[in-house]
């Protein structure tokens, strides 16, 4: 490498530029797909976790503990090497076939073992954390809210849907956005199973023309930029908490 000199053309031109473009697209796609899976998993887990019955809560508690206490990388490797192998053989063959319809714009294949394992792994991992953030937001809702709803004749699920969850979501929105941003950054781990996203491409450039520092700088900026845009969008779309200042409660003398 020989000291710190920079040559940006080696990264922002020719084949490396094309790789980077493909990498950005792949990162965006896998983040979006993971976002959907994570949201779905979070909803299911939360539903189980706040049910009134202990028997239903237990599986959710176990799932949360397992996925929180193991590294995401191990989970992704597991889904890719072991999980995929556990699928029925004809499913695997079907996924490995050519699917022109499953080609996303830019030439990123949706139905590949790498994309599926990464999406699923990121989705499950983040879903677990998101469910826990929302549950924490739920715990922070004043107990009087539940009582007021029950006293009005709301049942368990309606009380949750109309009274508790809107407040919990507003309480928890900032950390939830943090988890979605985390999902985007953690998609870099999918490089380990060969998903051609930004991190993978950056390493490819490094071994192609040894422009390591330039490639890392570009990669770093790309993640920062994606994170900034994504954070702004999510915060804008979130539940407005401006009008519901903490506690509608004023204490007496």
């Amino acid at each position: 490498m020989g000291g710190l000199t920079f040559d940006w053309i080696g990264v922002l031109g020719g084949a490396p530029l094309e790789w980077l473009e493909l990498g950005v697209l792949t990162t965006l796609y896998v983040t979006f797909a993971g976002f959907l899976v994570a949201t779905l998993i979070a909803i299911v887990l939360l539903g189980l976790r706040i049910s009134e019955k202990q028997i239903i809560q237990w599986p959710a508690i176990t799932v949360v503990a397992v996925f929180r206490n193991t590294p995401l990388l191990v989970q992704i490797l597991f889904w890719y090497f072991a999980g995929f192998g556990l699928l029925p053989a004809d499913w695997r063959a079907w996924i490995n076939d050519d699917h022109s319809w499953a080609m996303l714009p830019g030439g990123v294949g949706l139905l590949t073992p790498e994309f599926l394992a990464a999406t699923w792994g990121l989705g499950v991992f983040s879903g677990v954390f998101i469910a826990e953030e929302i549950r924490a937001g739920l715990m922070a809702v004043a107990p009087g809210q539940r009582e007021a709803a029950l006293a009005q004749g709301f049942g368990h699920w309606r009380c949750l849907g109309y009274i508790l969850l809107p407040q919990a979501l507003a309480n928890a929105w900032q950390p939830v956005v943090g988890q979605y941003l985390n999902l985007m950054k953690l998609s870099s781990l999918a490089a380990a199973i060969g998903l051609a996203e930004i991190t993978y491409q950056v390493r490819q450039i490094e071994s192609y023309n040894s422009h390591a520092l330039e490639a890392f700088a570009v990669g770093t900026l790309l993640y920062l930029a994606i994170g900034m845009v994504m954070g702004q969008i999510l915060l804008r779309c979130g539940p407005r908490s401006g009008t519901m200042i903490r506690g509608g409660i004023r204490r007496g003398p």
Partner: peptide
């Protein structure tokens, strides 16, 4: 916080020796 941990590792891996 805005950068993946992998990149922090990259940076130190290449910058410290340099």
């Amino acid at each position: 916080r805005g950068v993946p941990l992998i990149f922090v590792i990259f940076w130190l891996y290449f910058l410290v020796p340099a």
